[in-house]
Design a protein around this nucleic acid. Structure first.
Length: 148
DNA sequence: GCCAACGTTGGC
DNA sequence: GCCAACGTTGGC
């Protein structure tokens, strides 16, 4: 799951312990949260856009998809008049902090790992902010020395 | 800051 | 249903 650290970072999650992943306004990303993610699923927390770019830590799904209430608030940056409590359009999950990386696992590092060549995040032009990670990819990443 | 790549919108 | 225009994402 991608987040710009200036908006919400791995450090922020470490402080709060849990969070709801609001603000996703892309249908494919929404579908992953609403339809596929399950309690206990591991999450790679990825810092986008602001260097150092890459995986910053690990989280865990603690609540499956439910309506994103920030879409209903006209004052919210992610307000969407097409969503309502009666007919929610956008969904989110809750995450729990697991651990931080001692050091960011950089995008460059992911790209230079041949076994991760098929990973979605390294594909050209992919902007999806919530995306699935294969078990084999997860295992390779968890074996990186950046983990505590 | 640039810009490629993508998703969404809306006219037709 | 097509597709041009537009807005956004996100690496560099």
């Amino acid at each position: 799951m991608k987040s710009e650290p200036t908006e919400f970072s791995m450090e922020d999650l470490a402080v709060s312990g849990t969070t709801y992943w609001s603000g996703v306004r892309n249908f494919q990303a929404r579908n992953w949260m609403r339809d596929t993610m399950r309690v206990g699923d591991g999450v790679l927390f990825y810092h986008s856009n602001v260097p150092p770019i890459g995986i910053a830590g690990e989280a865990e799904v603690v609540r499956t998809g439910y309506p994103d209430h920030t879409a209903w608030d006209p004052k919210d940056r992610h307000f969407d008049p097409k969503s309502s409590p009666h007919a929610p359009l956008w969904f989110m999950v809750d995450l729990r902090y697991v651990r931080r990386c001692r050091q960011i696992i950089s995008l460059a590092q992911l790209k230079s790992t041949p076994q991760l060549a098929q990973m979605i995040v390294v594909q050209r032009g992919v902007r999806l902010s919530v995306q699935p990670v294969k078990l084999a990819e997860w295992k390779i990443i968890m074996a990186f020395p950046e983990w505590v």
